[in-house]
Nucleic acid binder design. Structure first.
Length: 226
DNA sequence: GCGACAG
DNA sequence: ATCTTGTCGC
């Protein structure tokens, strides 16, 4: 599948910032999704030299959580890692992987933030707008905002607040386990996003989508080292 | 100026 | 993200 929006990636920091400001206005913060049957997960891994990168996209059956399709693409990173401009480093290889996909997902879960971002346009929002897909940001660690520690039971959450605004939820997906940072990517509400993260994390801290994508991308990376 | 800083 | 040894625990 191809993006519905195409824009240059060989940009400098200043232009990338301007693009984020412009594209952020297109993010939809309410549920605009059909019945979710296919859920996608995406992840990127790096060669020890940090210029070679691999992206994996997996498609899971939303009910059984079985993997029904997976693709991997290799690329050379051209944009440096700059906090706040993460998507300009990771999306190019992800676009390569998406081109190989036969299945169109109904929802995409990303390893990183959505609106929990300085300009409310993290990786998940960027991918959502580019592909016009409902997306969720599910990060392993905090990027911006402050929050109290959520209570013990799985499902408990606290608001993640930045500049007086709720930009995400700190959500506990397993009892006595470090919580994850959930935020709106695109075309979904924060509460629906948390419901999906919980549904996709029946056994482990991270959603199965992220785990499966991570597993495949690591395998591709390891194979390339031999 | 200093500290923080998705992956 | 990746480099790294052991270690504690289910």
């Amino acid at each position: 599948m191809e993006p519905v929006i195409v824009h240059p990636w060989n940009v400098q920091e200043e232009e990338a910032l301007a693009m984020q400001h412009q594209l952020a206005s297109q993010v939809i913060q309410t549920d605009q999704m059909d019945t979710v049957q296919m859920v996608a997960g995406v992840d990127v891994a790096y060669h020890p030299r940090l210029d070679k990168q691999f992206a994996a996209v997996v498609i899971l059956d939303a009910e059984s959580l079985d993997v029904v399709e997976s693709v991997v693409a290799e690329d050379t990173a051209s944009f440096p890692y700059i906090p706040g401009l993460f998507s300009f480093r990771e999306i190019p290889p992800i676009i390569k992987a998406f081109k190989q996909l036969k299945t169109t997902p109904d929802l995409l879960v990303c390893d990183g933030q959505g609106m929990a971002h300085p300009r409310r346009f993290g990786l998940a929002s960027h991918l959502g707008v580019l592909y016009d897909l409902p997306t969720i940001g599910c990060g392993k660690t905090r990027f911006i905002g402050d929050a109290k520690e959520p209570d013990d039971p799985r499902g408990a959450f606290t608001p993640l607040i930045d500049q007086g605004e709720v930009v995400g939820h700190v959500l506990r997906t397993q009892n006595h386990t470090k919580p994850v940072y959930v935020s709106i990517g695109h075309r979904i509400s924060l509460f629906t996003a948390c419901d999906w993260v919980l549904k996709l994390s029946p056994r482990y801290r991270l959603p199965e989508t992220t785990r499966q994508a991570d597993q495949r991308v690591r395998k591709a990376l390891t194979a390339s080292l031999q």
